[in-house]
Amino acid sequence: MSNFQHGNYHSYYSMRGGTSIIDPRLKCLPDSLFYEASVLDIGCNNGTVSAQIASIFGASFVLGLDIDHVLIQKARKHLEFVSSRIGPVRNPGSIVEDQFNYYPISSIKKFSRIPVQLQPPLNKQNFPHNIEFETADFLRWESKRKFKIILALSVSKWVHLNNHDEGIIKFFGKISSLLETNGVLILEPQGWDSYLKAAKKISVFNQTPENLKIQPDAFEHLLNQAGLVLEYSIEPQVNNSEYKNFAKRTMYIYKKKGIGIIKLLTST
């Protein structure tokens, strides 16, 4: 895990503007998308996005999954930190954005975080008790439940590089099987140039791109075969220079129609 070959960068969010700003990718999505929905965040890193969905965006339940146990430990601490900072909620039932960073960081550092188990529900959806984190490799993980929304933000490249073409097919197939009917997949795939960069940077992937037959352009076809249909896409926000690399990739919103026909899973 030391060379971050799964994209498990330990300073991912602090390098991209800190964890105290609302993720611009979430702001691009429809306001009510997450409301009262069950959400799976694949490759949740330190849980920044998961915590924001569970608090401000009003998801009923969020499960953050990451392959790196250190990041999951960080995510649990981060959840304590985020929930400790939320100010007195004026409108019962919801956390508004200006309450998110209400208590100063200095007070958390001085008086310590408030453990999650001591905190009362901060919104109607029971935040911070409506969120869990788990260490697991998604492809080998067995879920006990289905989800209304699955997030795969900047993870497809790492699944693809580590598990090759079979892995990415299995990845999409598994996502489809875990989505409820009419469930939504929010996919933010990295481009092929990003694959080449990773191959150059991480020695174990030096030869990998040459052996991959599927490229990110073909993901839509694969997802269609897995029973997911592209609803719309969200283009990058070019003016968001303050977010550095955030919001520079296109996000695709797929919907699971009817009963997914997972041809590819059965064929492999």
């Binding site: 100010g87 208590y103 200095s106 001591l118 009362p120």
Partner: peptide
Amino acid sequence: VPPGWVLLTRKEWTNREEKYFENQLHLV
């Protein structure tokens, strides 16, 4: 100020710190 930046006067900062401590004490 850019998004995410927090600027507080000394009075407001002290007030919020005190509130946090009271809240924490109350919960414990």
